[in-house]
Nucleic acid binder design. Structure first.
Lengths: 338, 338
DNA sequence: GTGAAAGCGCTAACAA
DNA sequence: TTGTTAGCGCTTTCAC
């Protein structure tokens, strides 16, 4: 039931008849202060209900103990689990996390990044939007030597740490799997070419095909925004081809789901008529019927590692740690749809 | 390509040969400064790449412009969409949001709340954990008159604003719907009685039954933690009853899904043998087969409104606005499972 | 309409 | 081992 009057180190100091700096040091467990004094001060702090003014400390120390996060959308499972990982680690280190979403819009992303910059976050973890085709806003950080770390979707022109999964190899595995299960005509619904992840997935697809001596059928490569609607349209186009595919690697689970729904309403059997594979292992993928083959990305782990990495960098801004691209393993999950 | 040297109002001041206070005022569009001076200062600020030091301003002004959020888990769709709503509104008002998750553990929740308190957030939006049976940590806020707002799951002993959906009525509607479609033996898998939401859902269930003159069958009321596993076990118990139910109102979509899976592996037809209804409209609910009847909660809107409300309160701490419980409409969505 | 000066609560260089 | 002192960058009273 304590009331407003905030206790400061000066209150503690005068109460104990010592100086404020001693109080400050004692509170921070500075070894220059005798254990005895430290104990006394710390106890008094508790007794008087002292809480440090982080603002003042941060102003003095010129750090905010905050890391900024920008993701396309919070409510997508992959991103929310990544955020979960970021939060969990950051909190153990006393860092706060402020989150913002770009809605996959470049202009919104620029706005987010600028706001984080103005808020003086100590570092930024970002997964760029589908539209991001330039990097001026990102340079706000890199040019000013504020740590920046990309996860999943990165901007190739900014030198920095990155945490990704091996999209190329995953795309390769998916396609190889389709080939192995007997598909002869394999199509791919790809995402925006601006993004490394989709480019890589497509690359893996192409490599697997060419290794197997299969050429990409006419019209078998669709490039879309990977929304539900675009996915459905793209899949419809594929299935209306004179020689429709018997296996489709969809750029994400959302489009795979659209494909599934298209099949349902058009009485196509999955996987008999056409085998389907998605990407991301969204929560719904395991439970739709037929369940969706997909690639599981370790969202939580990526976030956790990202936080770990960036905090390490924040705490060693002077040390010249080389930038690193960390590739986490993803896992092909074969279910009923293929 | 600007470098480290941060510009301060003093730099602007000396550059323009005016005082720092004038610069400060001009930057804040204070009408005591002539329009002309304001323009000049603001332009200079841009030219010199000035960015205000929010930390210093906040220290002075004793606000952090930050609101804290505590949810059970970020990666559950309902919560991530609520957070999305909170973020969206807060950013328009220049507020930052710091998010933490309790993992439905009281001890973790206490920790989160304490951290937010120490971080001097200007207000807190919280949906309490399944274990929260006391309110000492919450009193940290309410006793110190820091605005606190509950959404969805609230603590009844703390006086404050609340934003909820009408769980009672939703539970009633679900049950009435099951009755209407011909179910005679309706069971309910309820959640922890500690939480208003589950208590209300159960209350609605009971009321609908009693109004219809149906009594609750023996063993028809299961109280669980509503996880996938507990849901499955509870549903298995129900179906092993001598007189198993022909309609089950599951406390959330997760348990409804478990039930569905149980039915699948036990060759029970849904909804013919047993009709199923869940709660929350998780992303998977619409796409499983059979698709899941459920109640849609407006997560994003709740978050948006919560942010709006708490910011209003933060900005009028002196005004005695009465506490309010805002009930948002939820919507029964009837799908194939019932 | 503008300036001088004090101070938010803390840390840290320098002294003792 | 402890204290003195000087700010961090901003806002704001009070004076002119």
């Amino acid at each position: 039931m304590r009331k407003h009057p905030e206790i400061t180190i000066h209150d503690l100091a005068s109460e104990l008849r010592i100086s404020a700096s001693t109080v400050s040091r004692a509170l921070n467990d500075n070894k220059r202060i005798s254990i005895k004094t430290r104990k006394i001060v710390q106890q008094k702090a508790i007794d008087m209900g002292y809480r440090p003014n982080i603002l003042a400390a941060n102003l003095r120390i010129k750090k905010t103990m905050t890391i900024g996060v920008v993701v396309p959308r919070i409510d997508r499972y992959f991103f929310s689990s990544a955020i979960s990982g970021i939060e969990d680690y950051a909190w153990t280190k006393g860092f706060n996390v402020i989150i913002s979403q770009s809605n996959d819009l470049l202009i919104k992303e620029e706005n987010c990044v600028r706001t984080l910059y103005n808020n003086r976050v100590d570092g930024m973890i970002i997964s760029i939007s589908m539209q991001t085709n330039e990097d001026n806003h990102l340079r706000l950080f890199s040019d000013n030597h504020i740590p920046i770390l990309f996860f999943d979707r990165f901007c190739p022109t900014i030198e920095s740490d990155r945490i990704v999964v091996d999209d190329f190899n995953s795309g390769y595995q998916i396609t190889a799997h389709l080939i192995e299960r007997g598909c002869k005509r394999i199509a791919h619904i790809a995402g925006p070419e601006l993004l490394n992840i989709y480019l890589d997935r497509k690359g893996g697809y192409l490599k697997a095909l060419s290794e197997a001596g299969i050429s990409v059928g006419d019209g078998y490569l669709e490039v879309t925004g990977l929304t539900r609607e675009e996915g459905r349209a793209a899949f419809a186009r594929l299935m209306s081809l004179p020689n429709p595919p018997d296996g489709v690697f969809c750029g994400n689970d959302t489009t795979a789901l659209s494909a599934l729904e298209y099949c349902r309403s058009n009485k196509l059997k999955v996987p008999e008529d056409v085998a389907l594979v998605g990407f991301s292992d969204e929560p719904f993928s395991a439970v739709v019927t037929p369940s969706l083959s997909t690639v599981k990305q370790p969202g939580y782990e990526m976030g956790f590692l990202a936080a770990q990495r960036i905090i390490e960098r924040i705490q060693n801004t002077n040390l010249p740690i080389p930038f690193e691209q960390i590739v986490l393993p993803s896992k092909l999950i074969i279910r009923q749809s293929s």
